[in-house]
Design a protein around this nucleic acid. Structure first.
Length: 255
DNA sequence: TTCCAGGGTGAGT
DNA sequence: ACTCACCATGGA
């Protein structure tokens, strides 16, 4: 299908796909259900195999109007304009909430290559086992360090609640509910809301975003950063965050 | 050897 | 509400 997207940027920008999907040449794949789903891009043409178009459109958020989003977040913002120019076609992805939560508990004070290794060690048949299963599973071989206790405790709680219902709440309320879980603070909660539940107004502040906000906008406190983001980029704070991240993140910096 | 990584928790103010 | 040591692992 034709789609406005830069698949490589989208799949390799520190979002959940970087932890769950594999790369073979120019093709990305992962096991979904009983089949292996492949994604690749040739020019404007987005190809998929082993999964249906509906899944691809939801996963890559192809219904997001990039022109509208770009117009909103770049208004009166030269930094964002530059980031958009450099990373055209980068999209926020929509991932399974539980898998997203697991990945971002693994992300605590960790780096992307090792988060990926941790997540891959937790996969069973290509998926993260459901909470009730993970709660009693052997986790030490994944070498999560101090995160293992967080993950097990959260899995045990979720085994007894309707996790999906959080996605029906408003942003602030959903955020408060997530932060009741062990290993879920402001940053992890916002990542789960953005990449798992699809709240584009979520604005995760990690060390890189904090650096960017200080360097480009002179803001030093996280609370101020979140207020600034809402005032300037609402309701697309999540997109603004991802483009900012690319400017300063490990693979985003150049020369 | 020291510093750092898509931070959270708990204890101290 | 804010600060800060500590947390386990592995790469640079």
């Amino acid at each position: 299908m034709r789609a406005r997207i830069n698949l490589r940027l989208t799949m390799e920008s520190g979002q959940p796909p970087e932890f769950f999907w594999n790369k073979e040449g120019e093709r990305y794949w992962r096991e979904l259900g009983k089949s292996r789903c492949y994604l690749w891009q040739e020019g404007e043409e987005l190809h998929y195999l082993g999964c249906d178009e509906g899944y691809v459109r939801e996963f890559l958020r192809l219904e997001d109007d990039l022109e509208e989003i770009y117009a909103v977040i770049s208004a009166g913002d030269e930094v964002m304009e530059r980031a958009i120019g450099r990373f055209q076609g980068l999209r926020i992805t929509k991932n399974d909430p539980w898998e997203t939560l697991v990945a971002f508990i693994c992300s605590i004070n960790n780096n992307i290559p090792r988060i990926r290794r941790n997540v891959q060690c937790l996969l069973r048949g290509g998926r993260i086992p459901p909470p009730e299963e993970l709660a009693g599973a052997e986790l030490s071989s994944a070498r999560l360090g101090f995160r293992e206790g967080y993950l097990r405790a959260t899995a045990a709680v979720l085994a007894r609640m309707d996790f999906h219902a959080i996605g029906e709440l408003g942003y602030e309320e959903a955020r408060q509910e997530l932060m009741k879980l062990r290993g879920v603070g402001e940053k992890v909660a916002d990542c789960v809301l953005l990449f798992g539940f699809g709240y584009l107004e979520a604005f995760p502040v990690d060390v890189w975003i904090a650096r960017a906000m200080r360097a480009y906008y002179g803001i030093t406190s996280v609370k101020e950063m979140r207020r600034f983001a809402r005032e300037r980029w609402h309701p697309y704070e999540g997109y603004a965050q991802q483009y900012l991240y690319m400017l300063v993140g490990r693979r985003g910096r150049r020369g």
